[in-house]
Design a protein around this nucleic acid. Sequence first.
DNA 1: CTGAAAGCGCTTACAG
DNA 2: CTGAAAGCGCTTACAG
Lengths: 343, 343
Amino acid sequence: VPERTGSPATLADVARIAGVSPATVSRVLNGNYPVSKATAARVESAVAELSYVVNGNARALAAATSDLVGIVVNDVADPFFGLIASGIQDETGGADVLAIIGNTNGEPDRELRYLTLLRRQRARAVVLTGGTVDEPGHLAALTKQIRALADAGCAVVQCGRPPLADTPGVSTVDFDNRGGAYALTSHLISLGHRKIGYISGPADRTTTRLRLRGHRQAMADHGLDGPVLSGVFSRATGENGAAELLQRDGRLTALVAGNDTIALGACTFLHSQGLSVPDDISVCGYDDLPYSADAALTTVRLPLTEAGRIAGRIALGQQPAPSGGVFPIGAELVIRTSTAPPR
Amino acid sequence: VPERTGSPATLADVARIAGVSPATVSRVLNGNYPVSKATAARVESAVAELSYVVNGNARALAAATSDLVGIVVNDVADPFFGLIASGIQDETGGADVLAIIGNTNGEPDRELRYLTLLRRQRARAVVLTGGTVDEPGHLAALTKQIRALADAGCAVVQCGRPPLADTPGVSTVDFDNRGGAYALTSHLISLGHRKIGYISGPADRTTTRLRLRGHRQAMADHGLDGPVLSGVFSRATGENGAAELLQRDGRLTALVAGNDTIALGACTFLHSQGLSVPDDISVCGYDDLPYSADAALTTVRLPLTEAGRIAGRIALGQQPAPSGGVFPIGAELVIRTSTAPPR
DNA sequence: CTGAAAGCGCTTACAG
DNA sequence: CTGAAAGCGCTTACAG
């Protein structure tokens, strides 16, 4: 069967070949209405003959629904988001649903722009993952976008950021960033550390702020204080941050990082200086990415894939929205050998 | 301005408020036609007043074009794909383009199904990343899908898999899997290793086959042969594979893995047995993921993000299709300290 | 520079 | 169980 280049077969073409009306073709395609066996068979063979595929845009327009689910991430190349996204896709990829992943690069404007694009596509659901910029102006704009989405009938779920005010109907899968950070720093203190430096992610991010708050609380509860640096969630921040902290205060015996990637970067710097972890200095991170085990990193485990699955299920209505709108995800301290008592 | 729940404003609403025709609104929105300043201003204020966002489905249907770009990956949670996808998004995310990332989990059926879904959405371009199943039946089905996509005017680009026959107009960004593997194993041999085991990814994948071919060629060129195991591209395969190979032959002095993730898993097993890398046994991988530096892994670097950028640019026509349809990406041997001469 | 009208490819009450 | 017809929300020749 020669295919005509440039113009795919339409439902009308199928109807013509099958000798039925377009309405009937639509019905057998969607299987939502009784159709005689014989008719269905003829339609199906016409579909096969033409390699017909429904025009998703026309369908979405006519039916006023879509099969698109949006996933907004800060960085697809970061396993933290990859793991969450794969969890979401585990739940949404089954049906004829298509996941749209938008990369904001942590920029507030791009986050808002993606939401507009998703609204334009009439996405069925959208999941916002990871931290966002914790600044009144951005939060207000975000709230507005999310409400517009929700008003249009789109299910909005947050995963890995705190609940947002004034967004009724929006569920949040919330990570315990503060509690985990508190436990982590407390562990260091219980090991005997008193001089602890902290290398955080972007200063204005919710994730950064909550983890830092947990850290500071643990320090304060023991009458301690320590230097804090901020950067981005990258290895480079870890390398530079470790260098700068040690230069400022050579007596530091432990370094806490805003996430595992930063921690790994810090280790790279320390090793380059001939320093041993944990003999000379203890290092710990946050997230427990699969790769963190290789560096024997003490960290805080967040069940990222599972959290993504939950968010995906809530978004598609396969799981009821949590009461109070918030589904809490606990953080678990994972002690490995990158931390030890100070010498 | 109270927003009506459930039904977003339409272009007709904007036209009414601005006191112009729908055609005029469309023209100012698309900026592809001269419109008077005054009229444009009135339209823009009506758009703002209603928080109007064009209906992407209606636009795509009427204009017969779309802003969707599909990216097909085997596993979003794997940084190999995350890095390629982020490169593609670097190039496609600028305009009002939306990237759809589909996770095939390496299953041929899901790969085909995603292609159908993308065809249904009338995607403007699609990039197929990573290896595919190298089996005649699947390749034939894949060819058919890709041709159907191309016939419908969709730009199709492959990134990280070999060129496909009978798909005119389809460009391929091709990784040097064979050459890199040859260089890697040759390095081991030049170090003095003679007993070398290999833990590969899925047996039927193009990536696996090409890397294995390079390895075997290097072995054969030196009159050597060695055990080969296959699994999947995971840490577990590395752990189990290393265990099995060493049990089969305790005299092995080096292990080559199908990718870095497998290599890292192998290291985990070796360490658990109290074996030292590279003192007791050398280990190497492939890809040079950022995390591989932490384990000081000798590996082969593939510029994944850059390859993704090139594929993205070709897909959007921002860069001419390579002559011969193939854009070769070289592989670079990266020697670190996970390999050393056998004791 | 602007508008009226047709058409994009579907779905879905409404009839029969 | 099946069809004719209207309508989804846009864009784009065609006129003016």
